[in-house]
Design a protein around this nucleic acid. Structure first.
Lengths: 163, 163
DNA sequence: GACCTGGCTTGCTCATTGCAAGCTAGCTGA
DNA sequence: TCAGCTAGCTTGCAATGAGCAAGCCAGGTC
């Protein structure tokens, strides 16, 4: 027997979080969802993930409540998109903590400087946290954007959760 | 071919971090190392991880600089222990972010309340951050302890990095 | 000398991954 | 009308990875 262990019912919240977020691909799917990706095909193309793995990962994220599957109109037909829920958008501090660690303790030839967080209300860079480093106002998710690194040179607003 | 993808050289720091931290078991090994576990046998017993998987995970963590392998005296003989490096201890915000998410968005019959962070200098609970919520002093790693959840009722000081 | 203990390694089996191909509903184009 | 396309899956196959059990080895103790 060799079924992979689950920590879904662990006493430790870190273990329960790692049960979803600690699988290969999941953190990157969440990263891209936070940057606004919603569609199967776009996740596939952006990540280079295999279709069947993407299918199972998206299903698990929906099952655990981080994403929700919503119908949308594409021309005259109905398709589905995966949108962040509140729980999914609440994983943002995890992504920022990972990004900070990665910036400090890893390097890559392909990296073009660290990933930056922009407070669009004042237009300046800030660290993640309760308030903007620059203007001191509370950092609402709607006023945040990512810049640099894998994103190219553009500024990417953080996706709103549904609901 | 089916070799698992590596994000070691990705442009994105989140991806580079996820390359190490996003593997099954790795976050839990780091959690236990932060709580003071240093020896192969203790990791094995505490986590219930298979020996060969533990071997490969520890090796990768050493290779990526999160742990270091140090000799120590056991009776008259030399053994080895795995100690957190600075890079390994800098992953603490990742663990706290995961814990916070897990506390908020997952539940378990086995959970006995959330995991808490104690500022041992003032003896009160605080949230992770730059300063203690209670006494306002800067939160040094040496003054922090975990309490509750998977740890039982005791208070566990956070392991010091070597170096 | 027999046994123990910590830290691996090896061998086996099943699960998961990567890849490629196929499938389906509903569109577009001719 | 009918081939072709597209998004989103599903299926099949080969290779890697996980879980388990057993074995190995050095340096102890009994």
């Amino acid at each position: 027997m060799s079924r992979r262990i689950t920590w879904e019912d662990a006493a430790c919240p870190i273990a329960r979080a790692a049960d979803v977020l600690g699988e290969p691909w999941t953190l990157l799917i969440l990263r891209n969802a936070t940057a606004g990706t919603t569609r199967f095909e776009d996740f596939r193309a952006q990540l280079g993930i295999a279709d069947n793995v993407l299918t199972t990962r998206l299903a698990k994220l929906v099952d655990r409540g981080l994403l929700t599957k919503l119908p949308y109109r594409d021309g005259g037909r109905t398709r589905h998109e995966y949108r962040l829920t509140q729980a999914g958008s609440d994983a943002l501090p995890v992504l920022h903590a990972l990004g900070a660690w990665g910036d400090t303790h890893t390097s890559s030839e392909n990296a073009r400087g660290p990933m930056k967080l922009v407070h669009t209300r004042c237009g300046r860079l800030t660290r993640p946290g309760a308030k903007c480093d620059n203007c001191g106002k509370p950092l609402a998710r709607d006023d945040l954007a990512w810049r640099g690194s894998w994103l190219g040179d553009g500024e990417i607003p953080l996706a709103d959760p549904v609901g």
